[in-house]
Structures are given as C-alpha cells and as structure tokens.
Nucleic acid binder design. Sequence first.
DNA 1: TATGAATGAGGGTTCATTCAT
DNA 2: GATGAATGAACCCTCATTCAT
Lengths: 208, 208, 208, 208
Amino acid sequence: MRKKRDAEGTKSRVLKSAEKLFARKGFNGTSIADISKDSGISDGLILYHFKSKDKLYQEVIERVAARYMQVFEGFRENNLPPAEMMKESLREVFGFWRTDSTYNRISLWAYLERREATAVNEARLTAGLAAYLASLQESGHFPREIDPVVFLSTIIGPIHFWFRYKTRFAEILKLTEKDGALDDHFLKQFTLMLTSFFRDPNGPKKAV
Amino acid sequence: MRKKRDAEGTKSRVLKSAEKLFARKGFNGTSIADISKDSGISDGLILYHFKSKDKLYQEVIERVAARYMQVFEGFRENNLPPAEMMKESLREVFGFWRTDSTYNRISLWAYLERREATAVNEARLTAGLAAYLASLQESGHFPREIDPVVFLSTIIGPIHFWFRYKTRFAEILKLTEKDGALDDHFLKQFTLMLTSFFRDPNGPKKAV
Amino acid sequence: MRKKRDAEGTKSRVLKSAEKLFARKGFNGTSIADISKDSGISDGLILYHFKSKDKLYQEVIERVAARYMQVFEGFRENNLPPAEMMKESLREVFGFWRTDSTYNRISLWAYLERREATAVNEARLTAGLAAYLASLQESGHFPREIDPVVFLSTIIGPIHFWFRYKTRFAEILKLTEKDGALDDHFLKQFTLMLTSFFRDPNGPKKAV
Amino acid sequence: MRKKRDAEGTKSRVLKSAEKLFARKGFNGTSIADISKDSGISDGLILYHFKSKDKLYQEVIERVAARYMQVFEGFRENNLPPAEMMKESLREVFGFWRTDSTYNRISLWAYLERREATAVNEARLTAGLAAYLASLQESGHFPREIDPVVFLSTIIGPIHFWFRYKTRFAEILKLTEKDGALDDHFLKQFTLMLTSFFRDPNGPKKAV
DNA sequence: TATGAATGAGGGTTCATTCAT
DNA sequence: GATGAATGAACCCTCATTCAT
C-alpha cells in the first residue's frame, strides 16, 4: 500500500496511537498489532523504527513526562507573593490534569508496571517544590511547623484523587452540574483551603 | 500429588496466590500458569473452580474490596467528638493502607482496567463520609463553607499519594529515618493539618 | 482433533520427525511448524513437551549419540587378537554409518552449529580407543612408532569421507556397481590396508 | 556515508563479510542484516548487487571452491618420483586446510545443504588423483591391489577428520603442545604411514 | 549506485481454555 | 475434584525482499 518514505511522519503516527492505547490498556494490554491497526503502520515497521515494544513504551512515557514537566517550568521565575503563586500553580497543575487525561493514566500504569521514568520525574518535581517551600519557611511566608513534603502531598494527592473518582462521586451524590462546572467548583474550594496556610509575615496571622 | 478433594482449601489457596500475583503484575501480566506454579494447584483445576481467568480476577478484586469496607464499619456507631473521630478515622485508614499494600495496587489496577468493584466501593464510602460531614455542618461542628467531598479528597488523596511516592521521596530527599518512622511522621503532621479545620461550635476559633 | 492423552506416544512421534528434519536441514533450517506438519502434533504441544526448540534439538542429538555409542559397547570385552578385533570394529562402525545415515548428518550439523554434545562424545570415544591402542603397543601388538590418535584418524576419517563423497565418486568415475556393492568393495579394501599395521609379536613381520 | 560509486569494491567487501559469516553460522544462521552490519554496506545494496541471499551464498561458495582448486593446479606438471610427490601433495593439502579454515566450514555447510559446487569440485579432484594413481599402478610404482579411490579416501579423510576433532583431542588427551606443533606432529606421522605404500618397482618391497 | 523505509510472511513461544483420564 | 495433555490464537520479533528517493 503506502510506500511513501516519511520516517518522521510514521514515527509520530505510531507514537500517537501508542500513547492512546497504552493509556487505555497499559503495556501488557496493548499489542503491537493493536497499534499497527490503529495507526495504519505495519507491525514490522513499528519495530523497525522503535527496536522493541519496550523501547516504544519508554519513548511514549518520556514524551508524556516531558509534557508534564513543561507545565512547571518558569514557576520560580515569576515574583508573585507566595499565596498568589500557590493559587497560580494550583490552577496550572489542575488545568494540566484536566486537559491531559492521558498523562494521568500513563503515569499510573507506569507506576504499577514499575517503570521508573514518570515516578522519578514526579517525585523529583515534588522534591523541588518542597525545597522551595522550605525557603519560604526561612523567610517566614510559610509556617515552619508544617513539613513541606506533607503539605505538597496535600496539594497534589487530592488532585490525583479528584480525577480518579469525580465521575463516581457525581453518580453517587447525584451531582447535576456538568463536568466542567464540577471541576471549577472543586478547584475553587480546594484553593481556598490551601491558601489559608500562607500568611503575610508582617501582617496579622490568618485563621481558617 | 495433592489429590485430596478439598474444594474450599483449593479455592482459598488459589485466591491467595492470585491476589499476590495480580497485585504485583496486574491481570495481563499474570498467567494462569503463574498462579498454578505459585499455588501448587494445576491449571485445569483453577479454571474448573473459577470458570475463567476473568472471573477469578473479579473474585479477587471483590475479596480485597470487602476487606477494605470492613475497616469502616462501626465508624458511625461511636460517639466521639468530631475532631477526635477524624483523628481516629485517619489513623485507621492510614493503618489499613500501611498494612495492606495489596489493596492499594489491586485497586489501582482495577481502576485502570475499568473494573468497577473497588472504585464504586471507594466512592460510595467517600460519599457516605461526606453525608456524615454534612450533618456535622448542620450541627455547626464543621465549617459550612467547605465542601465535604473536597475535604474528603484532601484527606484520602494525600494518603494515596504518600504510599505511592514515599520511597521515591525518601531516596530523593535522602531521608534517613526508616520506613515506619517516616510513616509516623507523615501521619502526625497530616493529622495536625486536618484537625485544624474542625472546631468546637461553642469554643474559640482554632487557628493553624 | 486428536485429544487422546498419550504423552509418551506424542513425544516419540515428535522426536522421530524432529530427527528426520534436523538431519535433513539442520537446526536453523527446520522450524517447529515443519516438525508439527510432519508429526501431526501441534506447535503448542511440541513446546509443551520439550520446553523449547533448543531443548528438543538437544534431546534429538542425545538420542542419536546414544545410538552411536552403543555400537562400541562391549568392544573391550571380547578377547579377539588385535588384528581380528580391528577388522571386527571396522565392520561394525562401517555398518553403523551405512545404516544410520541420520547420525552422520546430525553430527555434522551439530559440529557446524557448535553444539558440543556429539563432538565431545566422538572425541571421547576416539580417545578411549587410542588408549586401547597404546596398551597394544605395550604388549607389542601394534607398532610403537605410530601415534594411536593418528592411526584412529586414519580409520574413522576415511569412513566419514567415503559416506560423504561416494555418490559423487560413483558418478564421476562412472562406477556401475550398485551402492551396496560399492560399500562392500570399499570396506574390503580398506580393511586390508589397515590390518597390515597389526602384527603378531611372536610371528613374522607382516608386509603390505 | 559511503556514496562513492564503486561497484567492484562494494561487491568484494560484501563477499568478504558474507564468507566470514556464512562460514561461521551457515546460510540460515546468517541474515542479510548481519552481512550489512559487518560490511558496512546497506541491505538494499547487497541485494541490488547479488539479486538474492541465495545467489550471494552461491557466489561465496564458488569463490571459496575456486581457491581450493588452485592449490592443486600444476601438480601433474612436476616430475618428482611418486613417493616424493605424495609427500609434497600431502603437505600442500594439509597446509591449505590449516590456513584456510573457512574452506573447511563452507564446504561442510554446502554439503549438508546439498549445494553441489564444492562437493563436485572435491570429488572431481579426488577422481583426477585416482586416475593419476592408476597410471602409477600401470608403471608399477603403486601396488595394484589397492584401489586408488580407497587410498585417496585414506589420505584426505584423515585430514578432514583431524581438523574437525583436533581441539577436542587436545582437550581430552590433555595434549600440551600448542596448536601448530600438534599439526606438525600429525602431518609427520601421517606422512610416514602413507608413504609406506609406495615402493620402488625395482627395489625391495617396503614393509611398514 | 546507494540508502533505508516499508511490507508481509514466518520465526519461536506463551497462553487461556478444553477435555480425556 | 483433580490432572495435565492438547489446541489454536495471539504475542513480539526477525527477515528477505521491494521500491521511493
């Protein structure tokens, strides 16, 4: 059939299909034949370009992880006051999860299948943010008695959780707002809870 | 070898092996032959008792889910003051995750594979707790402006998160306490953060 | 189709086909599918019984080698005078090669494909015979100036050679005797040449 | 990379690699990709020059066979006395096998795979020598009662045999001379045995 | 000539499932 | 209830070959 020679085009079509299918069914649940069918690229050619299914998966994970990391670039550069920056970050991270549902699933599969790439990235990222919070503690913008890692778990954990269970919640609690509105509601509430922990070192102590 | 006809014994041995292996490698990563090898029960007999690999998996998930639900039975029965009960609940949930690492993984696999059993259970449980919190809002023990579902996400999400990333954190942050101590530290800090949201409707406003 | 449960029967049918095909086309030239077609046993079942193509090949080689070794058992036991025994041995070895053309080919494939089993057997056998010749040298029945290994090469080498080239010779030299007669002629001539090396230590020196 | 259009250079590089690899692993054990990797010539170009893997193999065999034949040209030309000439031939043939270990293997593969080229050459050569021996029988320089073909088998067979098994022998018999010395020893002994068959028609009968 | 993208058949092997025993 | 022989489909991967560039 297609004998056009377009290596890059082929690779990107394969990666796109592979990402979709790996996200949906995981590594073991996705066969090269599935990817071949979805992308229209023959089995042989997929292996020709990516050497092995394993390496293809790796490449998918890395692509996805890179996308995730991009969200956090430039965070440190801006000079917003901490509470504002926290709000901003939350909005960005939340927005990413909301848009790129693929990342969530790929990252979970990778975790379960013990592929390190994403887990390492994520932990490193969290650790980086933790260091930043520690510096805020130094300057008195963030309460010293709260462990930054614990605090960050309290930020990111609920977001993971929300996207994992929100449709179930909507069903069970018979929430009638449509999906987008639910997300907005969650984000607003959640932001409110978290920003209460930040304070102006010179101003009065904020209470919950 | 084992020719003793002991249906129940056989089934429970299979379930035990299957749970272990499914937790470790997921449905697609575990073969009947693996389970047979681990349990000492022949392939044929496994299928004889469970009809198919899929039904066996389903049974494993349900068993695991039932174990999880048990933890929360009798919560409503006690009459502790809300903040105390929250602490108590946290300790129990956390303790469960800590002990039963199998649950965590099986539940995640099931989520990704869109098997409903655990996800439904978990959401139902969260919804139940949400209803309870709403009643506390009625009685003025819990701030009305916080959405109970959001609040619960903030409780359970970080616990999930913690058990998913803690070893990575320990590596990256070069935490030297041993595993148990880390868990204790997290729980204490986390409890501190969360209980600050509860207040005595008659007493003074609590600050962080 | 065939669902009779007859493990031994199945294995021996596979081994028979495998031996035939490996002899004809070697390890790399024979596919499991070929063996399956020839034996009527499904691919899956062949691997079920033999674990891997490699192990199947190994088993074929060992079976064939065992057959070869049997020819030489009991050689040392008889008490014929050396020259007689040499004749006897030659007849047996030659007879084996003549009958069991499979051995020849399997052994050659194994040599080229660097499977050690047969080569080791054969070399060990030759070495054993060399030791025997050395003892004849001690007792004066075999000339001391001839190296036993060299001598044995002179026995077995030509037999290998004959069976490798005889049909070609017959063509080129337009030998009209039929195959069996050619073999007989070769054996007779060859025996004559070789026995001339043995002598009665007490009798007159034999000349060619 | 190499874009210089140099048909002959390309072909000879391919042939060199192909010969090496075919000798080592045989036709079925060597892929075009292997040859491509070893020679640095792209898959496509190899097929372009040689039409098919099979034809390439054929060409390799023929090249190798031609090299073998060269060794024996000019044998008949010299006028050495028969026994001397026999010694001389032995030394040459032996030397060829010793140096060109590739020939040995390629010729064996070709034999097993029923590719005629080498086998025909070799048999034709032996037949030619046989005719020469027959002429010596006429002139009384070689015993009439010995069949020339049988005699030649006795010359060439052991040489084949020796190069096939010598490393094994060295291992099993714990021969400590190094390889070259073993070869020399074999050749000397072997020459001794064989020349004993030649005699001076006018002189006394030689005994072993 | 020269490259390497593209194909499709076939390679060995695993696997869920069936069924004779 | 219990075993393991038997099957056939699917799996990942390799390969000779073709052909656009």
